[in-house]
């Protein structure tokens, strides 16, 4: 027994890396064979992200109603005592109301800012989010952030989502570029571009990703600047993009913002969630799986959670084994 233990110990000492690598690979491979989706409870952070899109048409209609009431009030004031300022305010309100009525279910901006390295986690959440918006009839604008190579990847995601969602609980048909969505593409120096969106979206992005003029597109007739956007979702693998959006969209213009990040940096964003600067926070693969399950999108991330489950169990097992080894060694040393 002692000989067996000492041989095992020396074998483990020399080969533990290779054994761990092989076991990790095996756990993930075998777990992915299971195609059954998991039943996951939705966390508060993900629920916030779901609620933003789910209630967007309702909130947009509330905005229209508020503007109509404001217009009526201003016109009543004008009939009593008119002034140049009041006339200008009425004109502005009328123009805003006109724009709100064009995209009557709301406008949702999705910032896809990840490349192939983070596609496994962020791809499913961006895809599910866009499909969720399409199934509610919300108009979608898609742009990119700091990652240069995000454009081809986001093009693929948008193309797939726009083909139609027959299998969704709220199915939708074919979505036309220009009237149902616009893909702006990548622009260098995104922070300045986002700031410029505050003044005019058309001057920030004159054309879409393929060079077509934005001014000709029906969807853009209802969007003058960032205040005409009802909600923003930033799916990013680097910390610059969500911070830029928090600084520009949330702090400056107070637009509801949802962030989806890879799990590496997501724990750093909980303070923003608690302070109300973010409405929702989608935490890596688990958050993507929760989102998919709730909206009924194809279960890409959900299937991958099986592998996540077994790998986590393996990691915990290794922690326990390592600590037992540590305590035994410590006892022997004592």
């Amino acid at each position: 027994m002692k000989l067996f233990l000492s041989r095992f110990t020396s074998f483990w000492k020399n080969r533990y890396r290779a054994i761990i690598y092989i076991m990790t690979f095996a756990f993930v491979w075998l777990a992915l064979i299971n195609k059954k989706p998991l039943d996951l409870t939705v966390s508060d952070a993900t629920q916030g992200a779901l609620d933003l899109v789910e209630h967007m048409p309702e909130n947009h209609r509330k905005k229209i109603k508020e503007q109509e009431e404001l217009l009526a009030k201003l016109q009543k004031e004008e009939s009593v005592q008119s002034s140049a300022e009041l006339t200008a305010q009425i004109d502005e309100t009328k123009a805003y109301l006109e724009r709100l009525r064009i995209n009557s279910n709301g406008v949702f901006l999705v910032c896809i800012d990840f490349d192939a390295g983070s596609d496994a986690e962020l791809g499913p959440m961006a895809y599910a989010s866009i499909r969720h918006a399409f199934s509610l009839g919300i108009k979608v604008l898609i742009n990119n952030g700091y990652t240069v190579m995000a454009q081809p990847l986001s093009q693929m995601i948008v193309d797939s989502a726009a083909l139609g969602g027959a299998t969704m609980p709220r199915p939708y048909g074919f979505k036309q570029a220009g009237s149902d969505f616009v893909f702006f593409g990548f622009r260098p120096n995104p922070f300045q571009v986002y700031l410029q969106m505050g003044e005019s979206v058309l001057s920030a992005y004159e054309t879409d990703y393929s060079g077509k003029a934005l001014a000709e597109m029906p969807i853009m007739k209802g969007i003058k600047d960032i205040r005409d956007i009802d909600g923003i979702a930033a799916y990013s693998c680097n910390v610059g993009t969500p911070e830029s959006w928090i600084n520009v969209a949330q702090t400056k213009f107070n637009i509801p913002l949802v962030v989806g990040m890879t799990a590496v940096s997501v724990s750093d964003y909980f303070p923003y969630l608690q302070s109300g600067q973010l409405c929702g926070l989608i935490t890596g693969l688990r958050g993507a799986a929760e989102y998919e399950k709730t909206v009924g999108a194809p279960p890409v991330a959900n299937r991958r959670m099986w592998a996540q489950l077994y790998t986590h169990a393996f990691a915990i097992g290794l922690i326990v084994v390592g600590n037992i080894e540590y305590f035994i060694k410590g006892k022997r040393a004592a």
Binding site: W29, E121, L285, Q308
Partner: peptide, 14 residues
């Protein structure tokens, strides 16, 4: 969360 993120990438490749 870092373990989760890195494992997700491995899962994507496999």
């Amino acid at each position: 969360f870092t373990i989760m993120a890195r494992v997700s990438l491995l899962i994507g490749r496999i």
